[in-house]
Design a binder for these strands. Sequence first.
DNA 1: ATCCAGGTCTGTT
DNA 2: AACAGACATGGA
Length: 280
Amino acid sequence: MKLKVEDSFLLSHILKCGQTFRYEELGEEKFSVCSADRRIMIEQKGNIIDVSCSEEEFEKHWKKFFDLELNYGEVKEKIRKIEPKISDYIDKLYGIRILKQEPFEMFISFIISQNNSMTNIKKVVNNICEKYGEQKEDEFGVYYAFPTVEALSKVSREEFRELKAGFRDKYLVDAISKINSGEIDLNEFYGLSTNEGRKKLMTVKGIGRKVADCILLFGYYKMDVFPVDVWIRRALTNLYFEGQKVKDEVLLDKAYEVFGDLSGIAQQYVFYGIIDENKK
DNA sequence: ATCCAGGTCTGTT
DNA sequence: AACAGACATGGA
């Protein structure tokens, strides 16, 4: 099916900015994308996207995934007004959107993301899907669903090691066992405030503030979080503290004070903008 | 070879 | 409370 999208939509910006790991680049603005137990082929030409699924399937699953209910054009104007200094980043990464993904998939993916590179994260997540996810088939061939909690609850540290998770093996086991036992309820975070949710998430070994915030933002759509990594830290200290180092808490309070409920989106522009700047 | 990748944990001051 | 090192793995 084909669909018209607003100007604030570009597949490469959306998929390659480090919020999702189960996609493959097939060509110019052409990708395969997996989420939960689904897969689509999707290609963009100008404002038209061509998706391999039915209208019904798109409406039911992928419309939400790509956050098409929100008008990013308006959001961007608000952010520009709040902070004109990041206007260039918004121009450059005009097509980014915050994907709404499956919580469990975000737990696993972002635990793996710590001190790791994009390519390696993708590899390990895919290894886990291929080994423990249900095998599915569509018109393009075989693919794998993201594994269920149940399936991963039987996986040992050693087995995660074999899939190249490295030292994060024990963190994965801890997170999965807490979810499987009900100590952590995947649904409870929808009803918790960002602060309460973060506190709960950080009871898991291997989930610190950064990983917790990514789970809240990409898995639960908490738009008031502002995940801080080395890049963001550098950008924010330059913007607001004249390059002098300050505690993360101070930095985050400042970010929230400035961007409020637009923090999640603003952070994406800043993050990808900085990365992009440093690539060359 | 050395350093670093969307960090976090642990042990020392 | 603040800081240093360790940690698996792979790519530059």
